[in-house]
Structure formats: structure tokens, C-alpha cells
């Protein structure tokens, strides 16, 4: 007996994310979806990354914000191709938004594509945009209780960047406790401590990226 089904296998966002994934894989680009609160330092970390990896890896950035192109402008100063997505109120980037922009890029000419998501510790974690890895930036001014309060984003990410460590002496941030909580939520997750002011931790972060790019290209 034949049963007519005609049902889509994946939800709309997952389907488009699968398409993005295939598109990136076909072009050998490693993609990281970088998330974090507004003001955690995502763009600053990216600026430091551009400085260090320029000339070594061919990079591009997709910026996500509700309004303005302020972040894209900052990245553009480093001579790295960047496209700004404005969600006009949307709290996260989704696969359709990323696809629309990625289709306009010369992906074959890239090693590394960084998607800087909208500042938000909640919603972006729910939406696959076709990335290889998710990453979360948490700054020490935000409180060491945040990992347990926002478990999903830490469980979903391959790397946690604990940022602004140069002002740790002035914050109530218990680094050991935060690391313990993050490890409890996501055993084995890579945790890096960084400061964009002093440059601490930027090299280990870039080394992590280099390795992921190499792994992707060898697949």
C-alpha cells in the first residue's frame, strides 16, 4: 500500500542551515557563529583576531545587529570583507539571513568566515545558521553566575571566551567558579581568558581558529 506523505523533513531554519553548511563545505570555508551579550567584547575580539591573522588566513565577517553598521565599520578598517545584516528588531540571526548574504560572497576565496551574532545570550543559541562551531564571549563584568543562568548557549558552543580579564581585580568575578560551572554544563569545552586591551589570550584563541580551519580544509 502506498501512503502519500509530501512532508518536509526539517523545519525551515534547519533546512536552510543545512543548505548553508553544504555551501560552506563545498567551498572549504570554516565558519564560526560568535555569540555573547551586548558589550561582552565580540567585535573587539574580532578586531584583535583580524590584526593577528591578517595575511595568514583569508577572512570575512558577517555582522548581525538590530540597527547601525557600527560593527561592520570597525571590521572594515582592518581591510577584511564584511557585510552587515540589520535585523531591525530581530533578536538573532537565522539561516535565511546568513544565506542571503553568503550567496553574494566569493566563498571559494575564503578560509575563515566569522558570523558575529546579535548581542544576546538567549535566542541565538537556538538557531543554526550552518556554522561549523558556535562560540560564546562572556566578559568578567557580567557576573560569574551567567553560565548557569544561560545554560544552552554554553552547551551549544565549542569555545567560551572569558573576556576583559585585565579588569578582573576590579570585578566580583570568581574565575574558578565560572570555569567550574562552564565545565559542568559542557564537560571538555575549551575555555580561553582574553583581554583586548592587553592582548592576553588572543594568540591561543587565534591558534584555536587556525587548527579548526586546517581541520576543515583537510576534510
Amino acid at each position: 500500500m502506498e501512503i502519500q506523505v509530501r512532508k518536509n523533513i526539517l523545519g525551515e531554519n534547519d533546512r536552510m542551515a543545512a543548505e548553508n553548511r553544504a555551501m560552506f563545505a563545498d567551498n572549504g570555508v570554516y565558519v564560526i557563529n560568535l555569540m555573547g551579550s551586548p558589550g561582552s567584547g565580540k567585535t573587539s575580539v574580532l578586531e584583535k583576531t583580524m590584526e593577528k591573522l591578517k595575511g595568514e588566513l583569508r577572512m570575512a565577517v558577517i555582522e548581525g545587529d538590530l540597527f547601525t553598521s557600527k560593527d561592520a565599520d570597525r571590521i572594515a578598517k582592518h581591510d577584511v570583507p564584511v557585510i552587515q545584516i540589520n535585523t531591525s528588531g530581530g533578536c538573532h540571526l537565522d539561516a535565511a539571513m546568513v544565506q542571503k548574504v553568503a550567496r553574494k560572497m566569493d566563498l571559494a576565496a575564503l578560509d575563515l568566515l566569522i558570523v558575529e551574532n546579535v548581542g544576546n545570550l538567549v535566542c541565538p543559541a537556538e538557531f543554526d545558521v550552518g556554522e561549523d562551531d558556535k562560540g560564546v564571549v562572556l566578559s568578567v563584568t557580567e557576573g560569574d553566575d551567567k553560565p548557569l543562568k544561560y545554560p544552552l548557549i554554553f552547551k551549544e558552543s565549542a569555545v567560551a571566551i572569558l573576556n576583559k580579564v585585565d579588569i578582573l581585580p576590579y570585578c566580583n568575578f570568581d574565575m574558578e567558579s565560572a570555569r567550574e560551572d562552564i565545565s559542568a554544563l559542557h564537560p571538555g569545552m575549551t575555555i580561553l581568558e582574553t583581554s583586548c586591551t592587553t592582548g592576553q589570550g588572543i594568540e591561543p584563541w587565534c591558534e584555536w581558529l587556525r587548527q579548526r580551519v586546517e581541520e576543515k580544509q583537510n576534510r
Binding site: C91, H92, V122, C123, E126, F127, L152
Partner: peptide, 10 residues
Amino acid sequence: MCKECGCGEM
């Protein structure tokens, strides 16, 4: 999951 803005898995 995002009960605030309604996005994500209900």
C-alpha cells in the same frame, strides 16, 4: 525555548 520573544522551539 525563547519565551520572551517567541522564537525557537515551542
